Amino acid sequence: MSTYLHDGIAFDLTRSFVDVIGVEWEWRGEWTASGEPLLVSPGLPESPAPLPDVYRDHGPLIPISLRPSAAQYRAAVDPDYAATVAAGYVEDHIAAAVAPVLTAHHLQPSPLEQTGFRGFIRSLQKDGA
């Protein structure tokens, strides 16, 4: 029996659950004397708790989606991964791209260069030199 019904909710015990603060809970095949599944947090393996207590104290319990395998990740990123590797593809094309180097002539002159306080200071420097 891998399904447990509690408060009208069917829990698939073959999956792990996460509570509202992010603690993961899983069933390891143990039951209480009254027939409730014992859930264990992998971080606290010494403290199993009945599913109804975990649901009441830490719930709601959200089933964790099955994690994709490495092959599924590769298929999502590159559906033809084997052909890409066989073709010898490497990511050196990014390093080969040359970014333009900006120099002072690319920038617009500041309006403060000709007027305002800087202009006044420059006029003093020219007169005093």
Rank of each mutant, 00 (worst) to 15 (best):
R15E: 08
R15N: 06
F17C: 02
V18Y: 03
V18H: 01
V20G: 04
I21P: 00
I21G: 04
V23D: 15
V23M: 11
V23I: 07
E24Y: 00
W25I: 03
E26Q: 11
E26H: 07
W27C: 04
R28S: 04
R28G: 14
G29C: 03
E30A: 13
W31Q: 09
W31N: 04
A33I: 10
S34M: 09
S34H: 12
E36D: 14
P37I: 08
P37R: 05
P37S: 07
L38S: 03
L39D: 00
L39M: 09
V40F: 06
V40E: 04
G43M: 11
G43R: 15
L44E: 12
L44I: 11
P45L: 08
E46Y: 09
S47R: 15
P48S: 09
P48I: 08
A49M: 12
P50N: 07
P50Q: 06
P50I: 06
L51C: 02
L51H: 04
L51Y: 03
P52E: 05
D53L: 14
D53W: 13
D53V: 13
D53T: 15
D53N: 11
D53Q: 13
V54K: 02
V54M: 01
V54E: 02
Y55D: 12
Y55H: 15
Y55F: 13
Y55Q: 13
H58W: 05
H58V: 00
G59P: 01
G59I: 00
P60Q: 03
L61V: 00
P63K: 01
I64G: 02
I64Q: 10
R67A: 14
R67F: 07
P68M: 01
P68T: 02
A70P: 00
A70S: 10
A70T: 11
A71F: 03
A71H: 10
Q72C: 03
Y73F: 15
R74Q: 14
A76L: 13
A76Y: 10
V77T: 06
V77W: 09
D78F: 15
D78P: 00
D78L: 10
P79N: 01
A82Y: 05
A82K: 07
A82N: 10
A82L: 09
T84E: 07
T84Q: 06
T84N: 08
T84F: 04
V85G: 02
V85H: 02
A86E: 12
A86P: 00
Y89E: 11
V90D: 08
V90Q: 08
V90I: 11
V90S: 08
E91H: 15
D92K: 06
D92W: 10
D92L: 12
I94G: 06
A95P: 00
A95Q: 07
A96T: 12
A97T: 08
V98A: 11
V98R: 12
V98G: 03
V98H: 07
V98L: 10
A99K: 09
P100A: 05
P100G: 04
P100K: 04
P100D: 07
V101P: 00
V101F: 06
V101C: 05
T103Q: 09
H106L: 07
L107S: 13
P109F: 01
S110T: 09
P111G: 08
P111E: 12
P111M: 06
L112N: 11
L112P: 00
L112A: 14
E113K: 08
E113M: 08
T115H: 14
T115Q: 14
F117L: 15
F117V: 13
R118H: 12
R118N: 09
R118W: 06
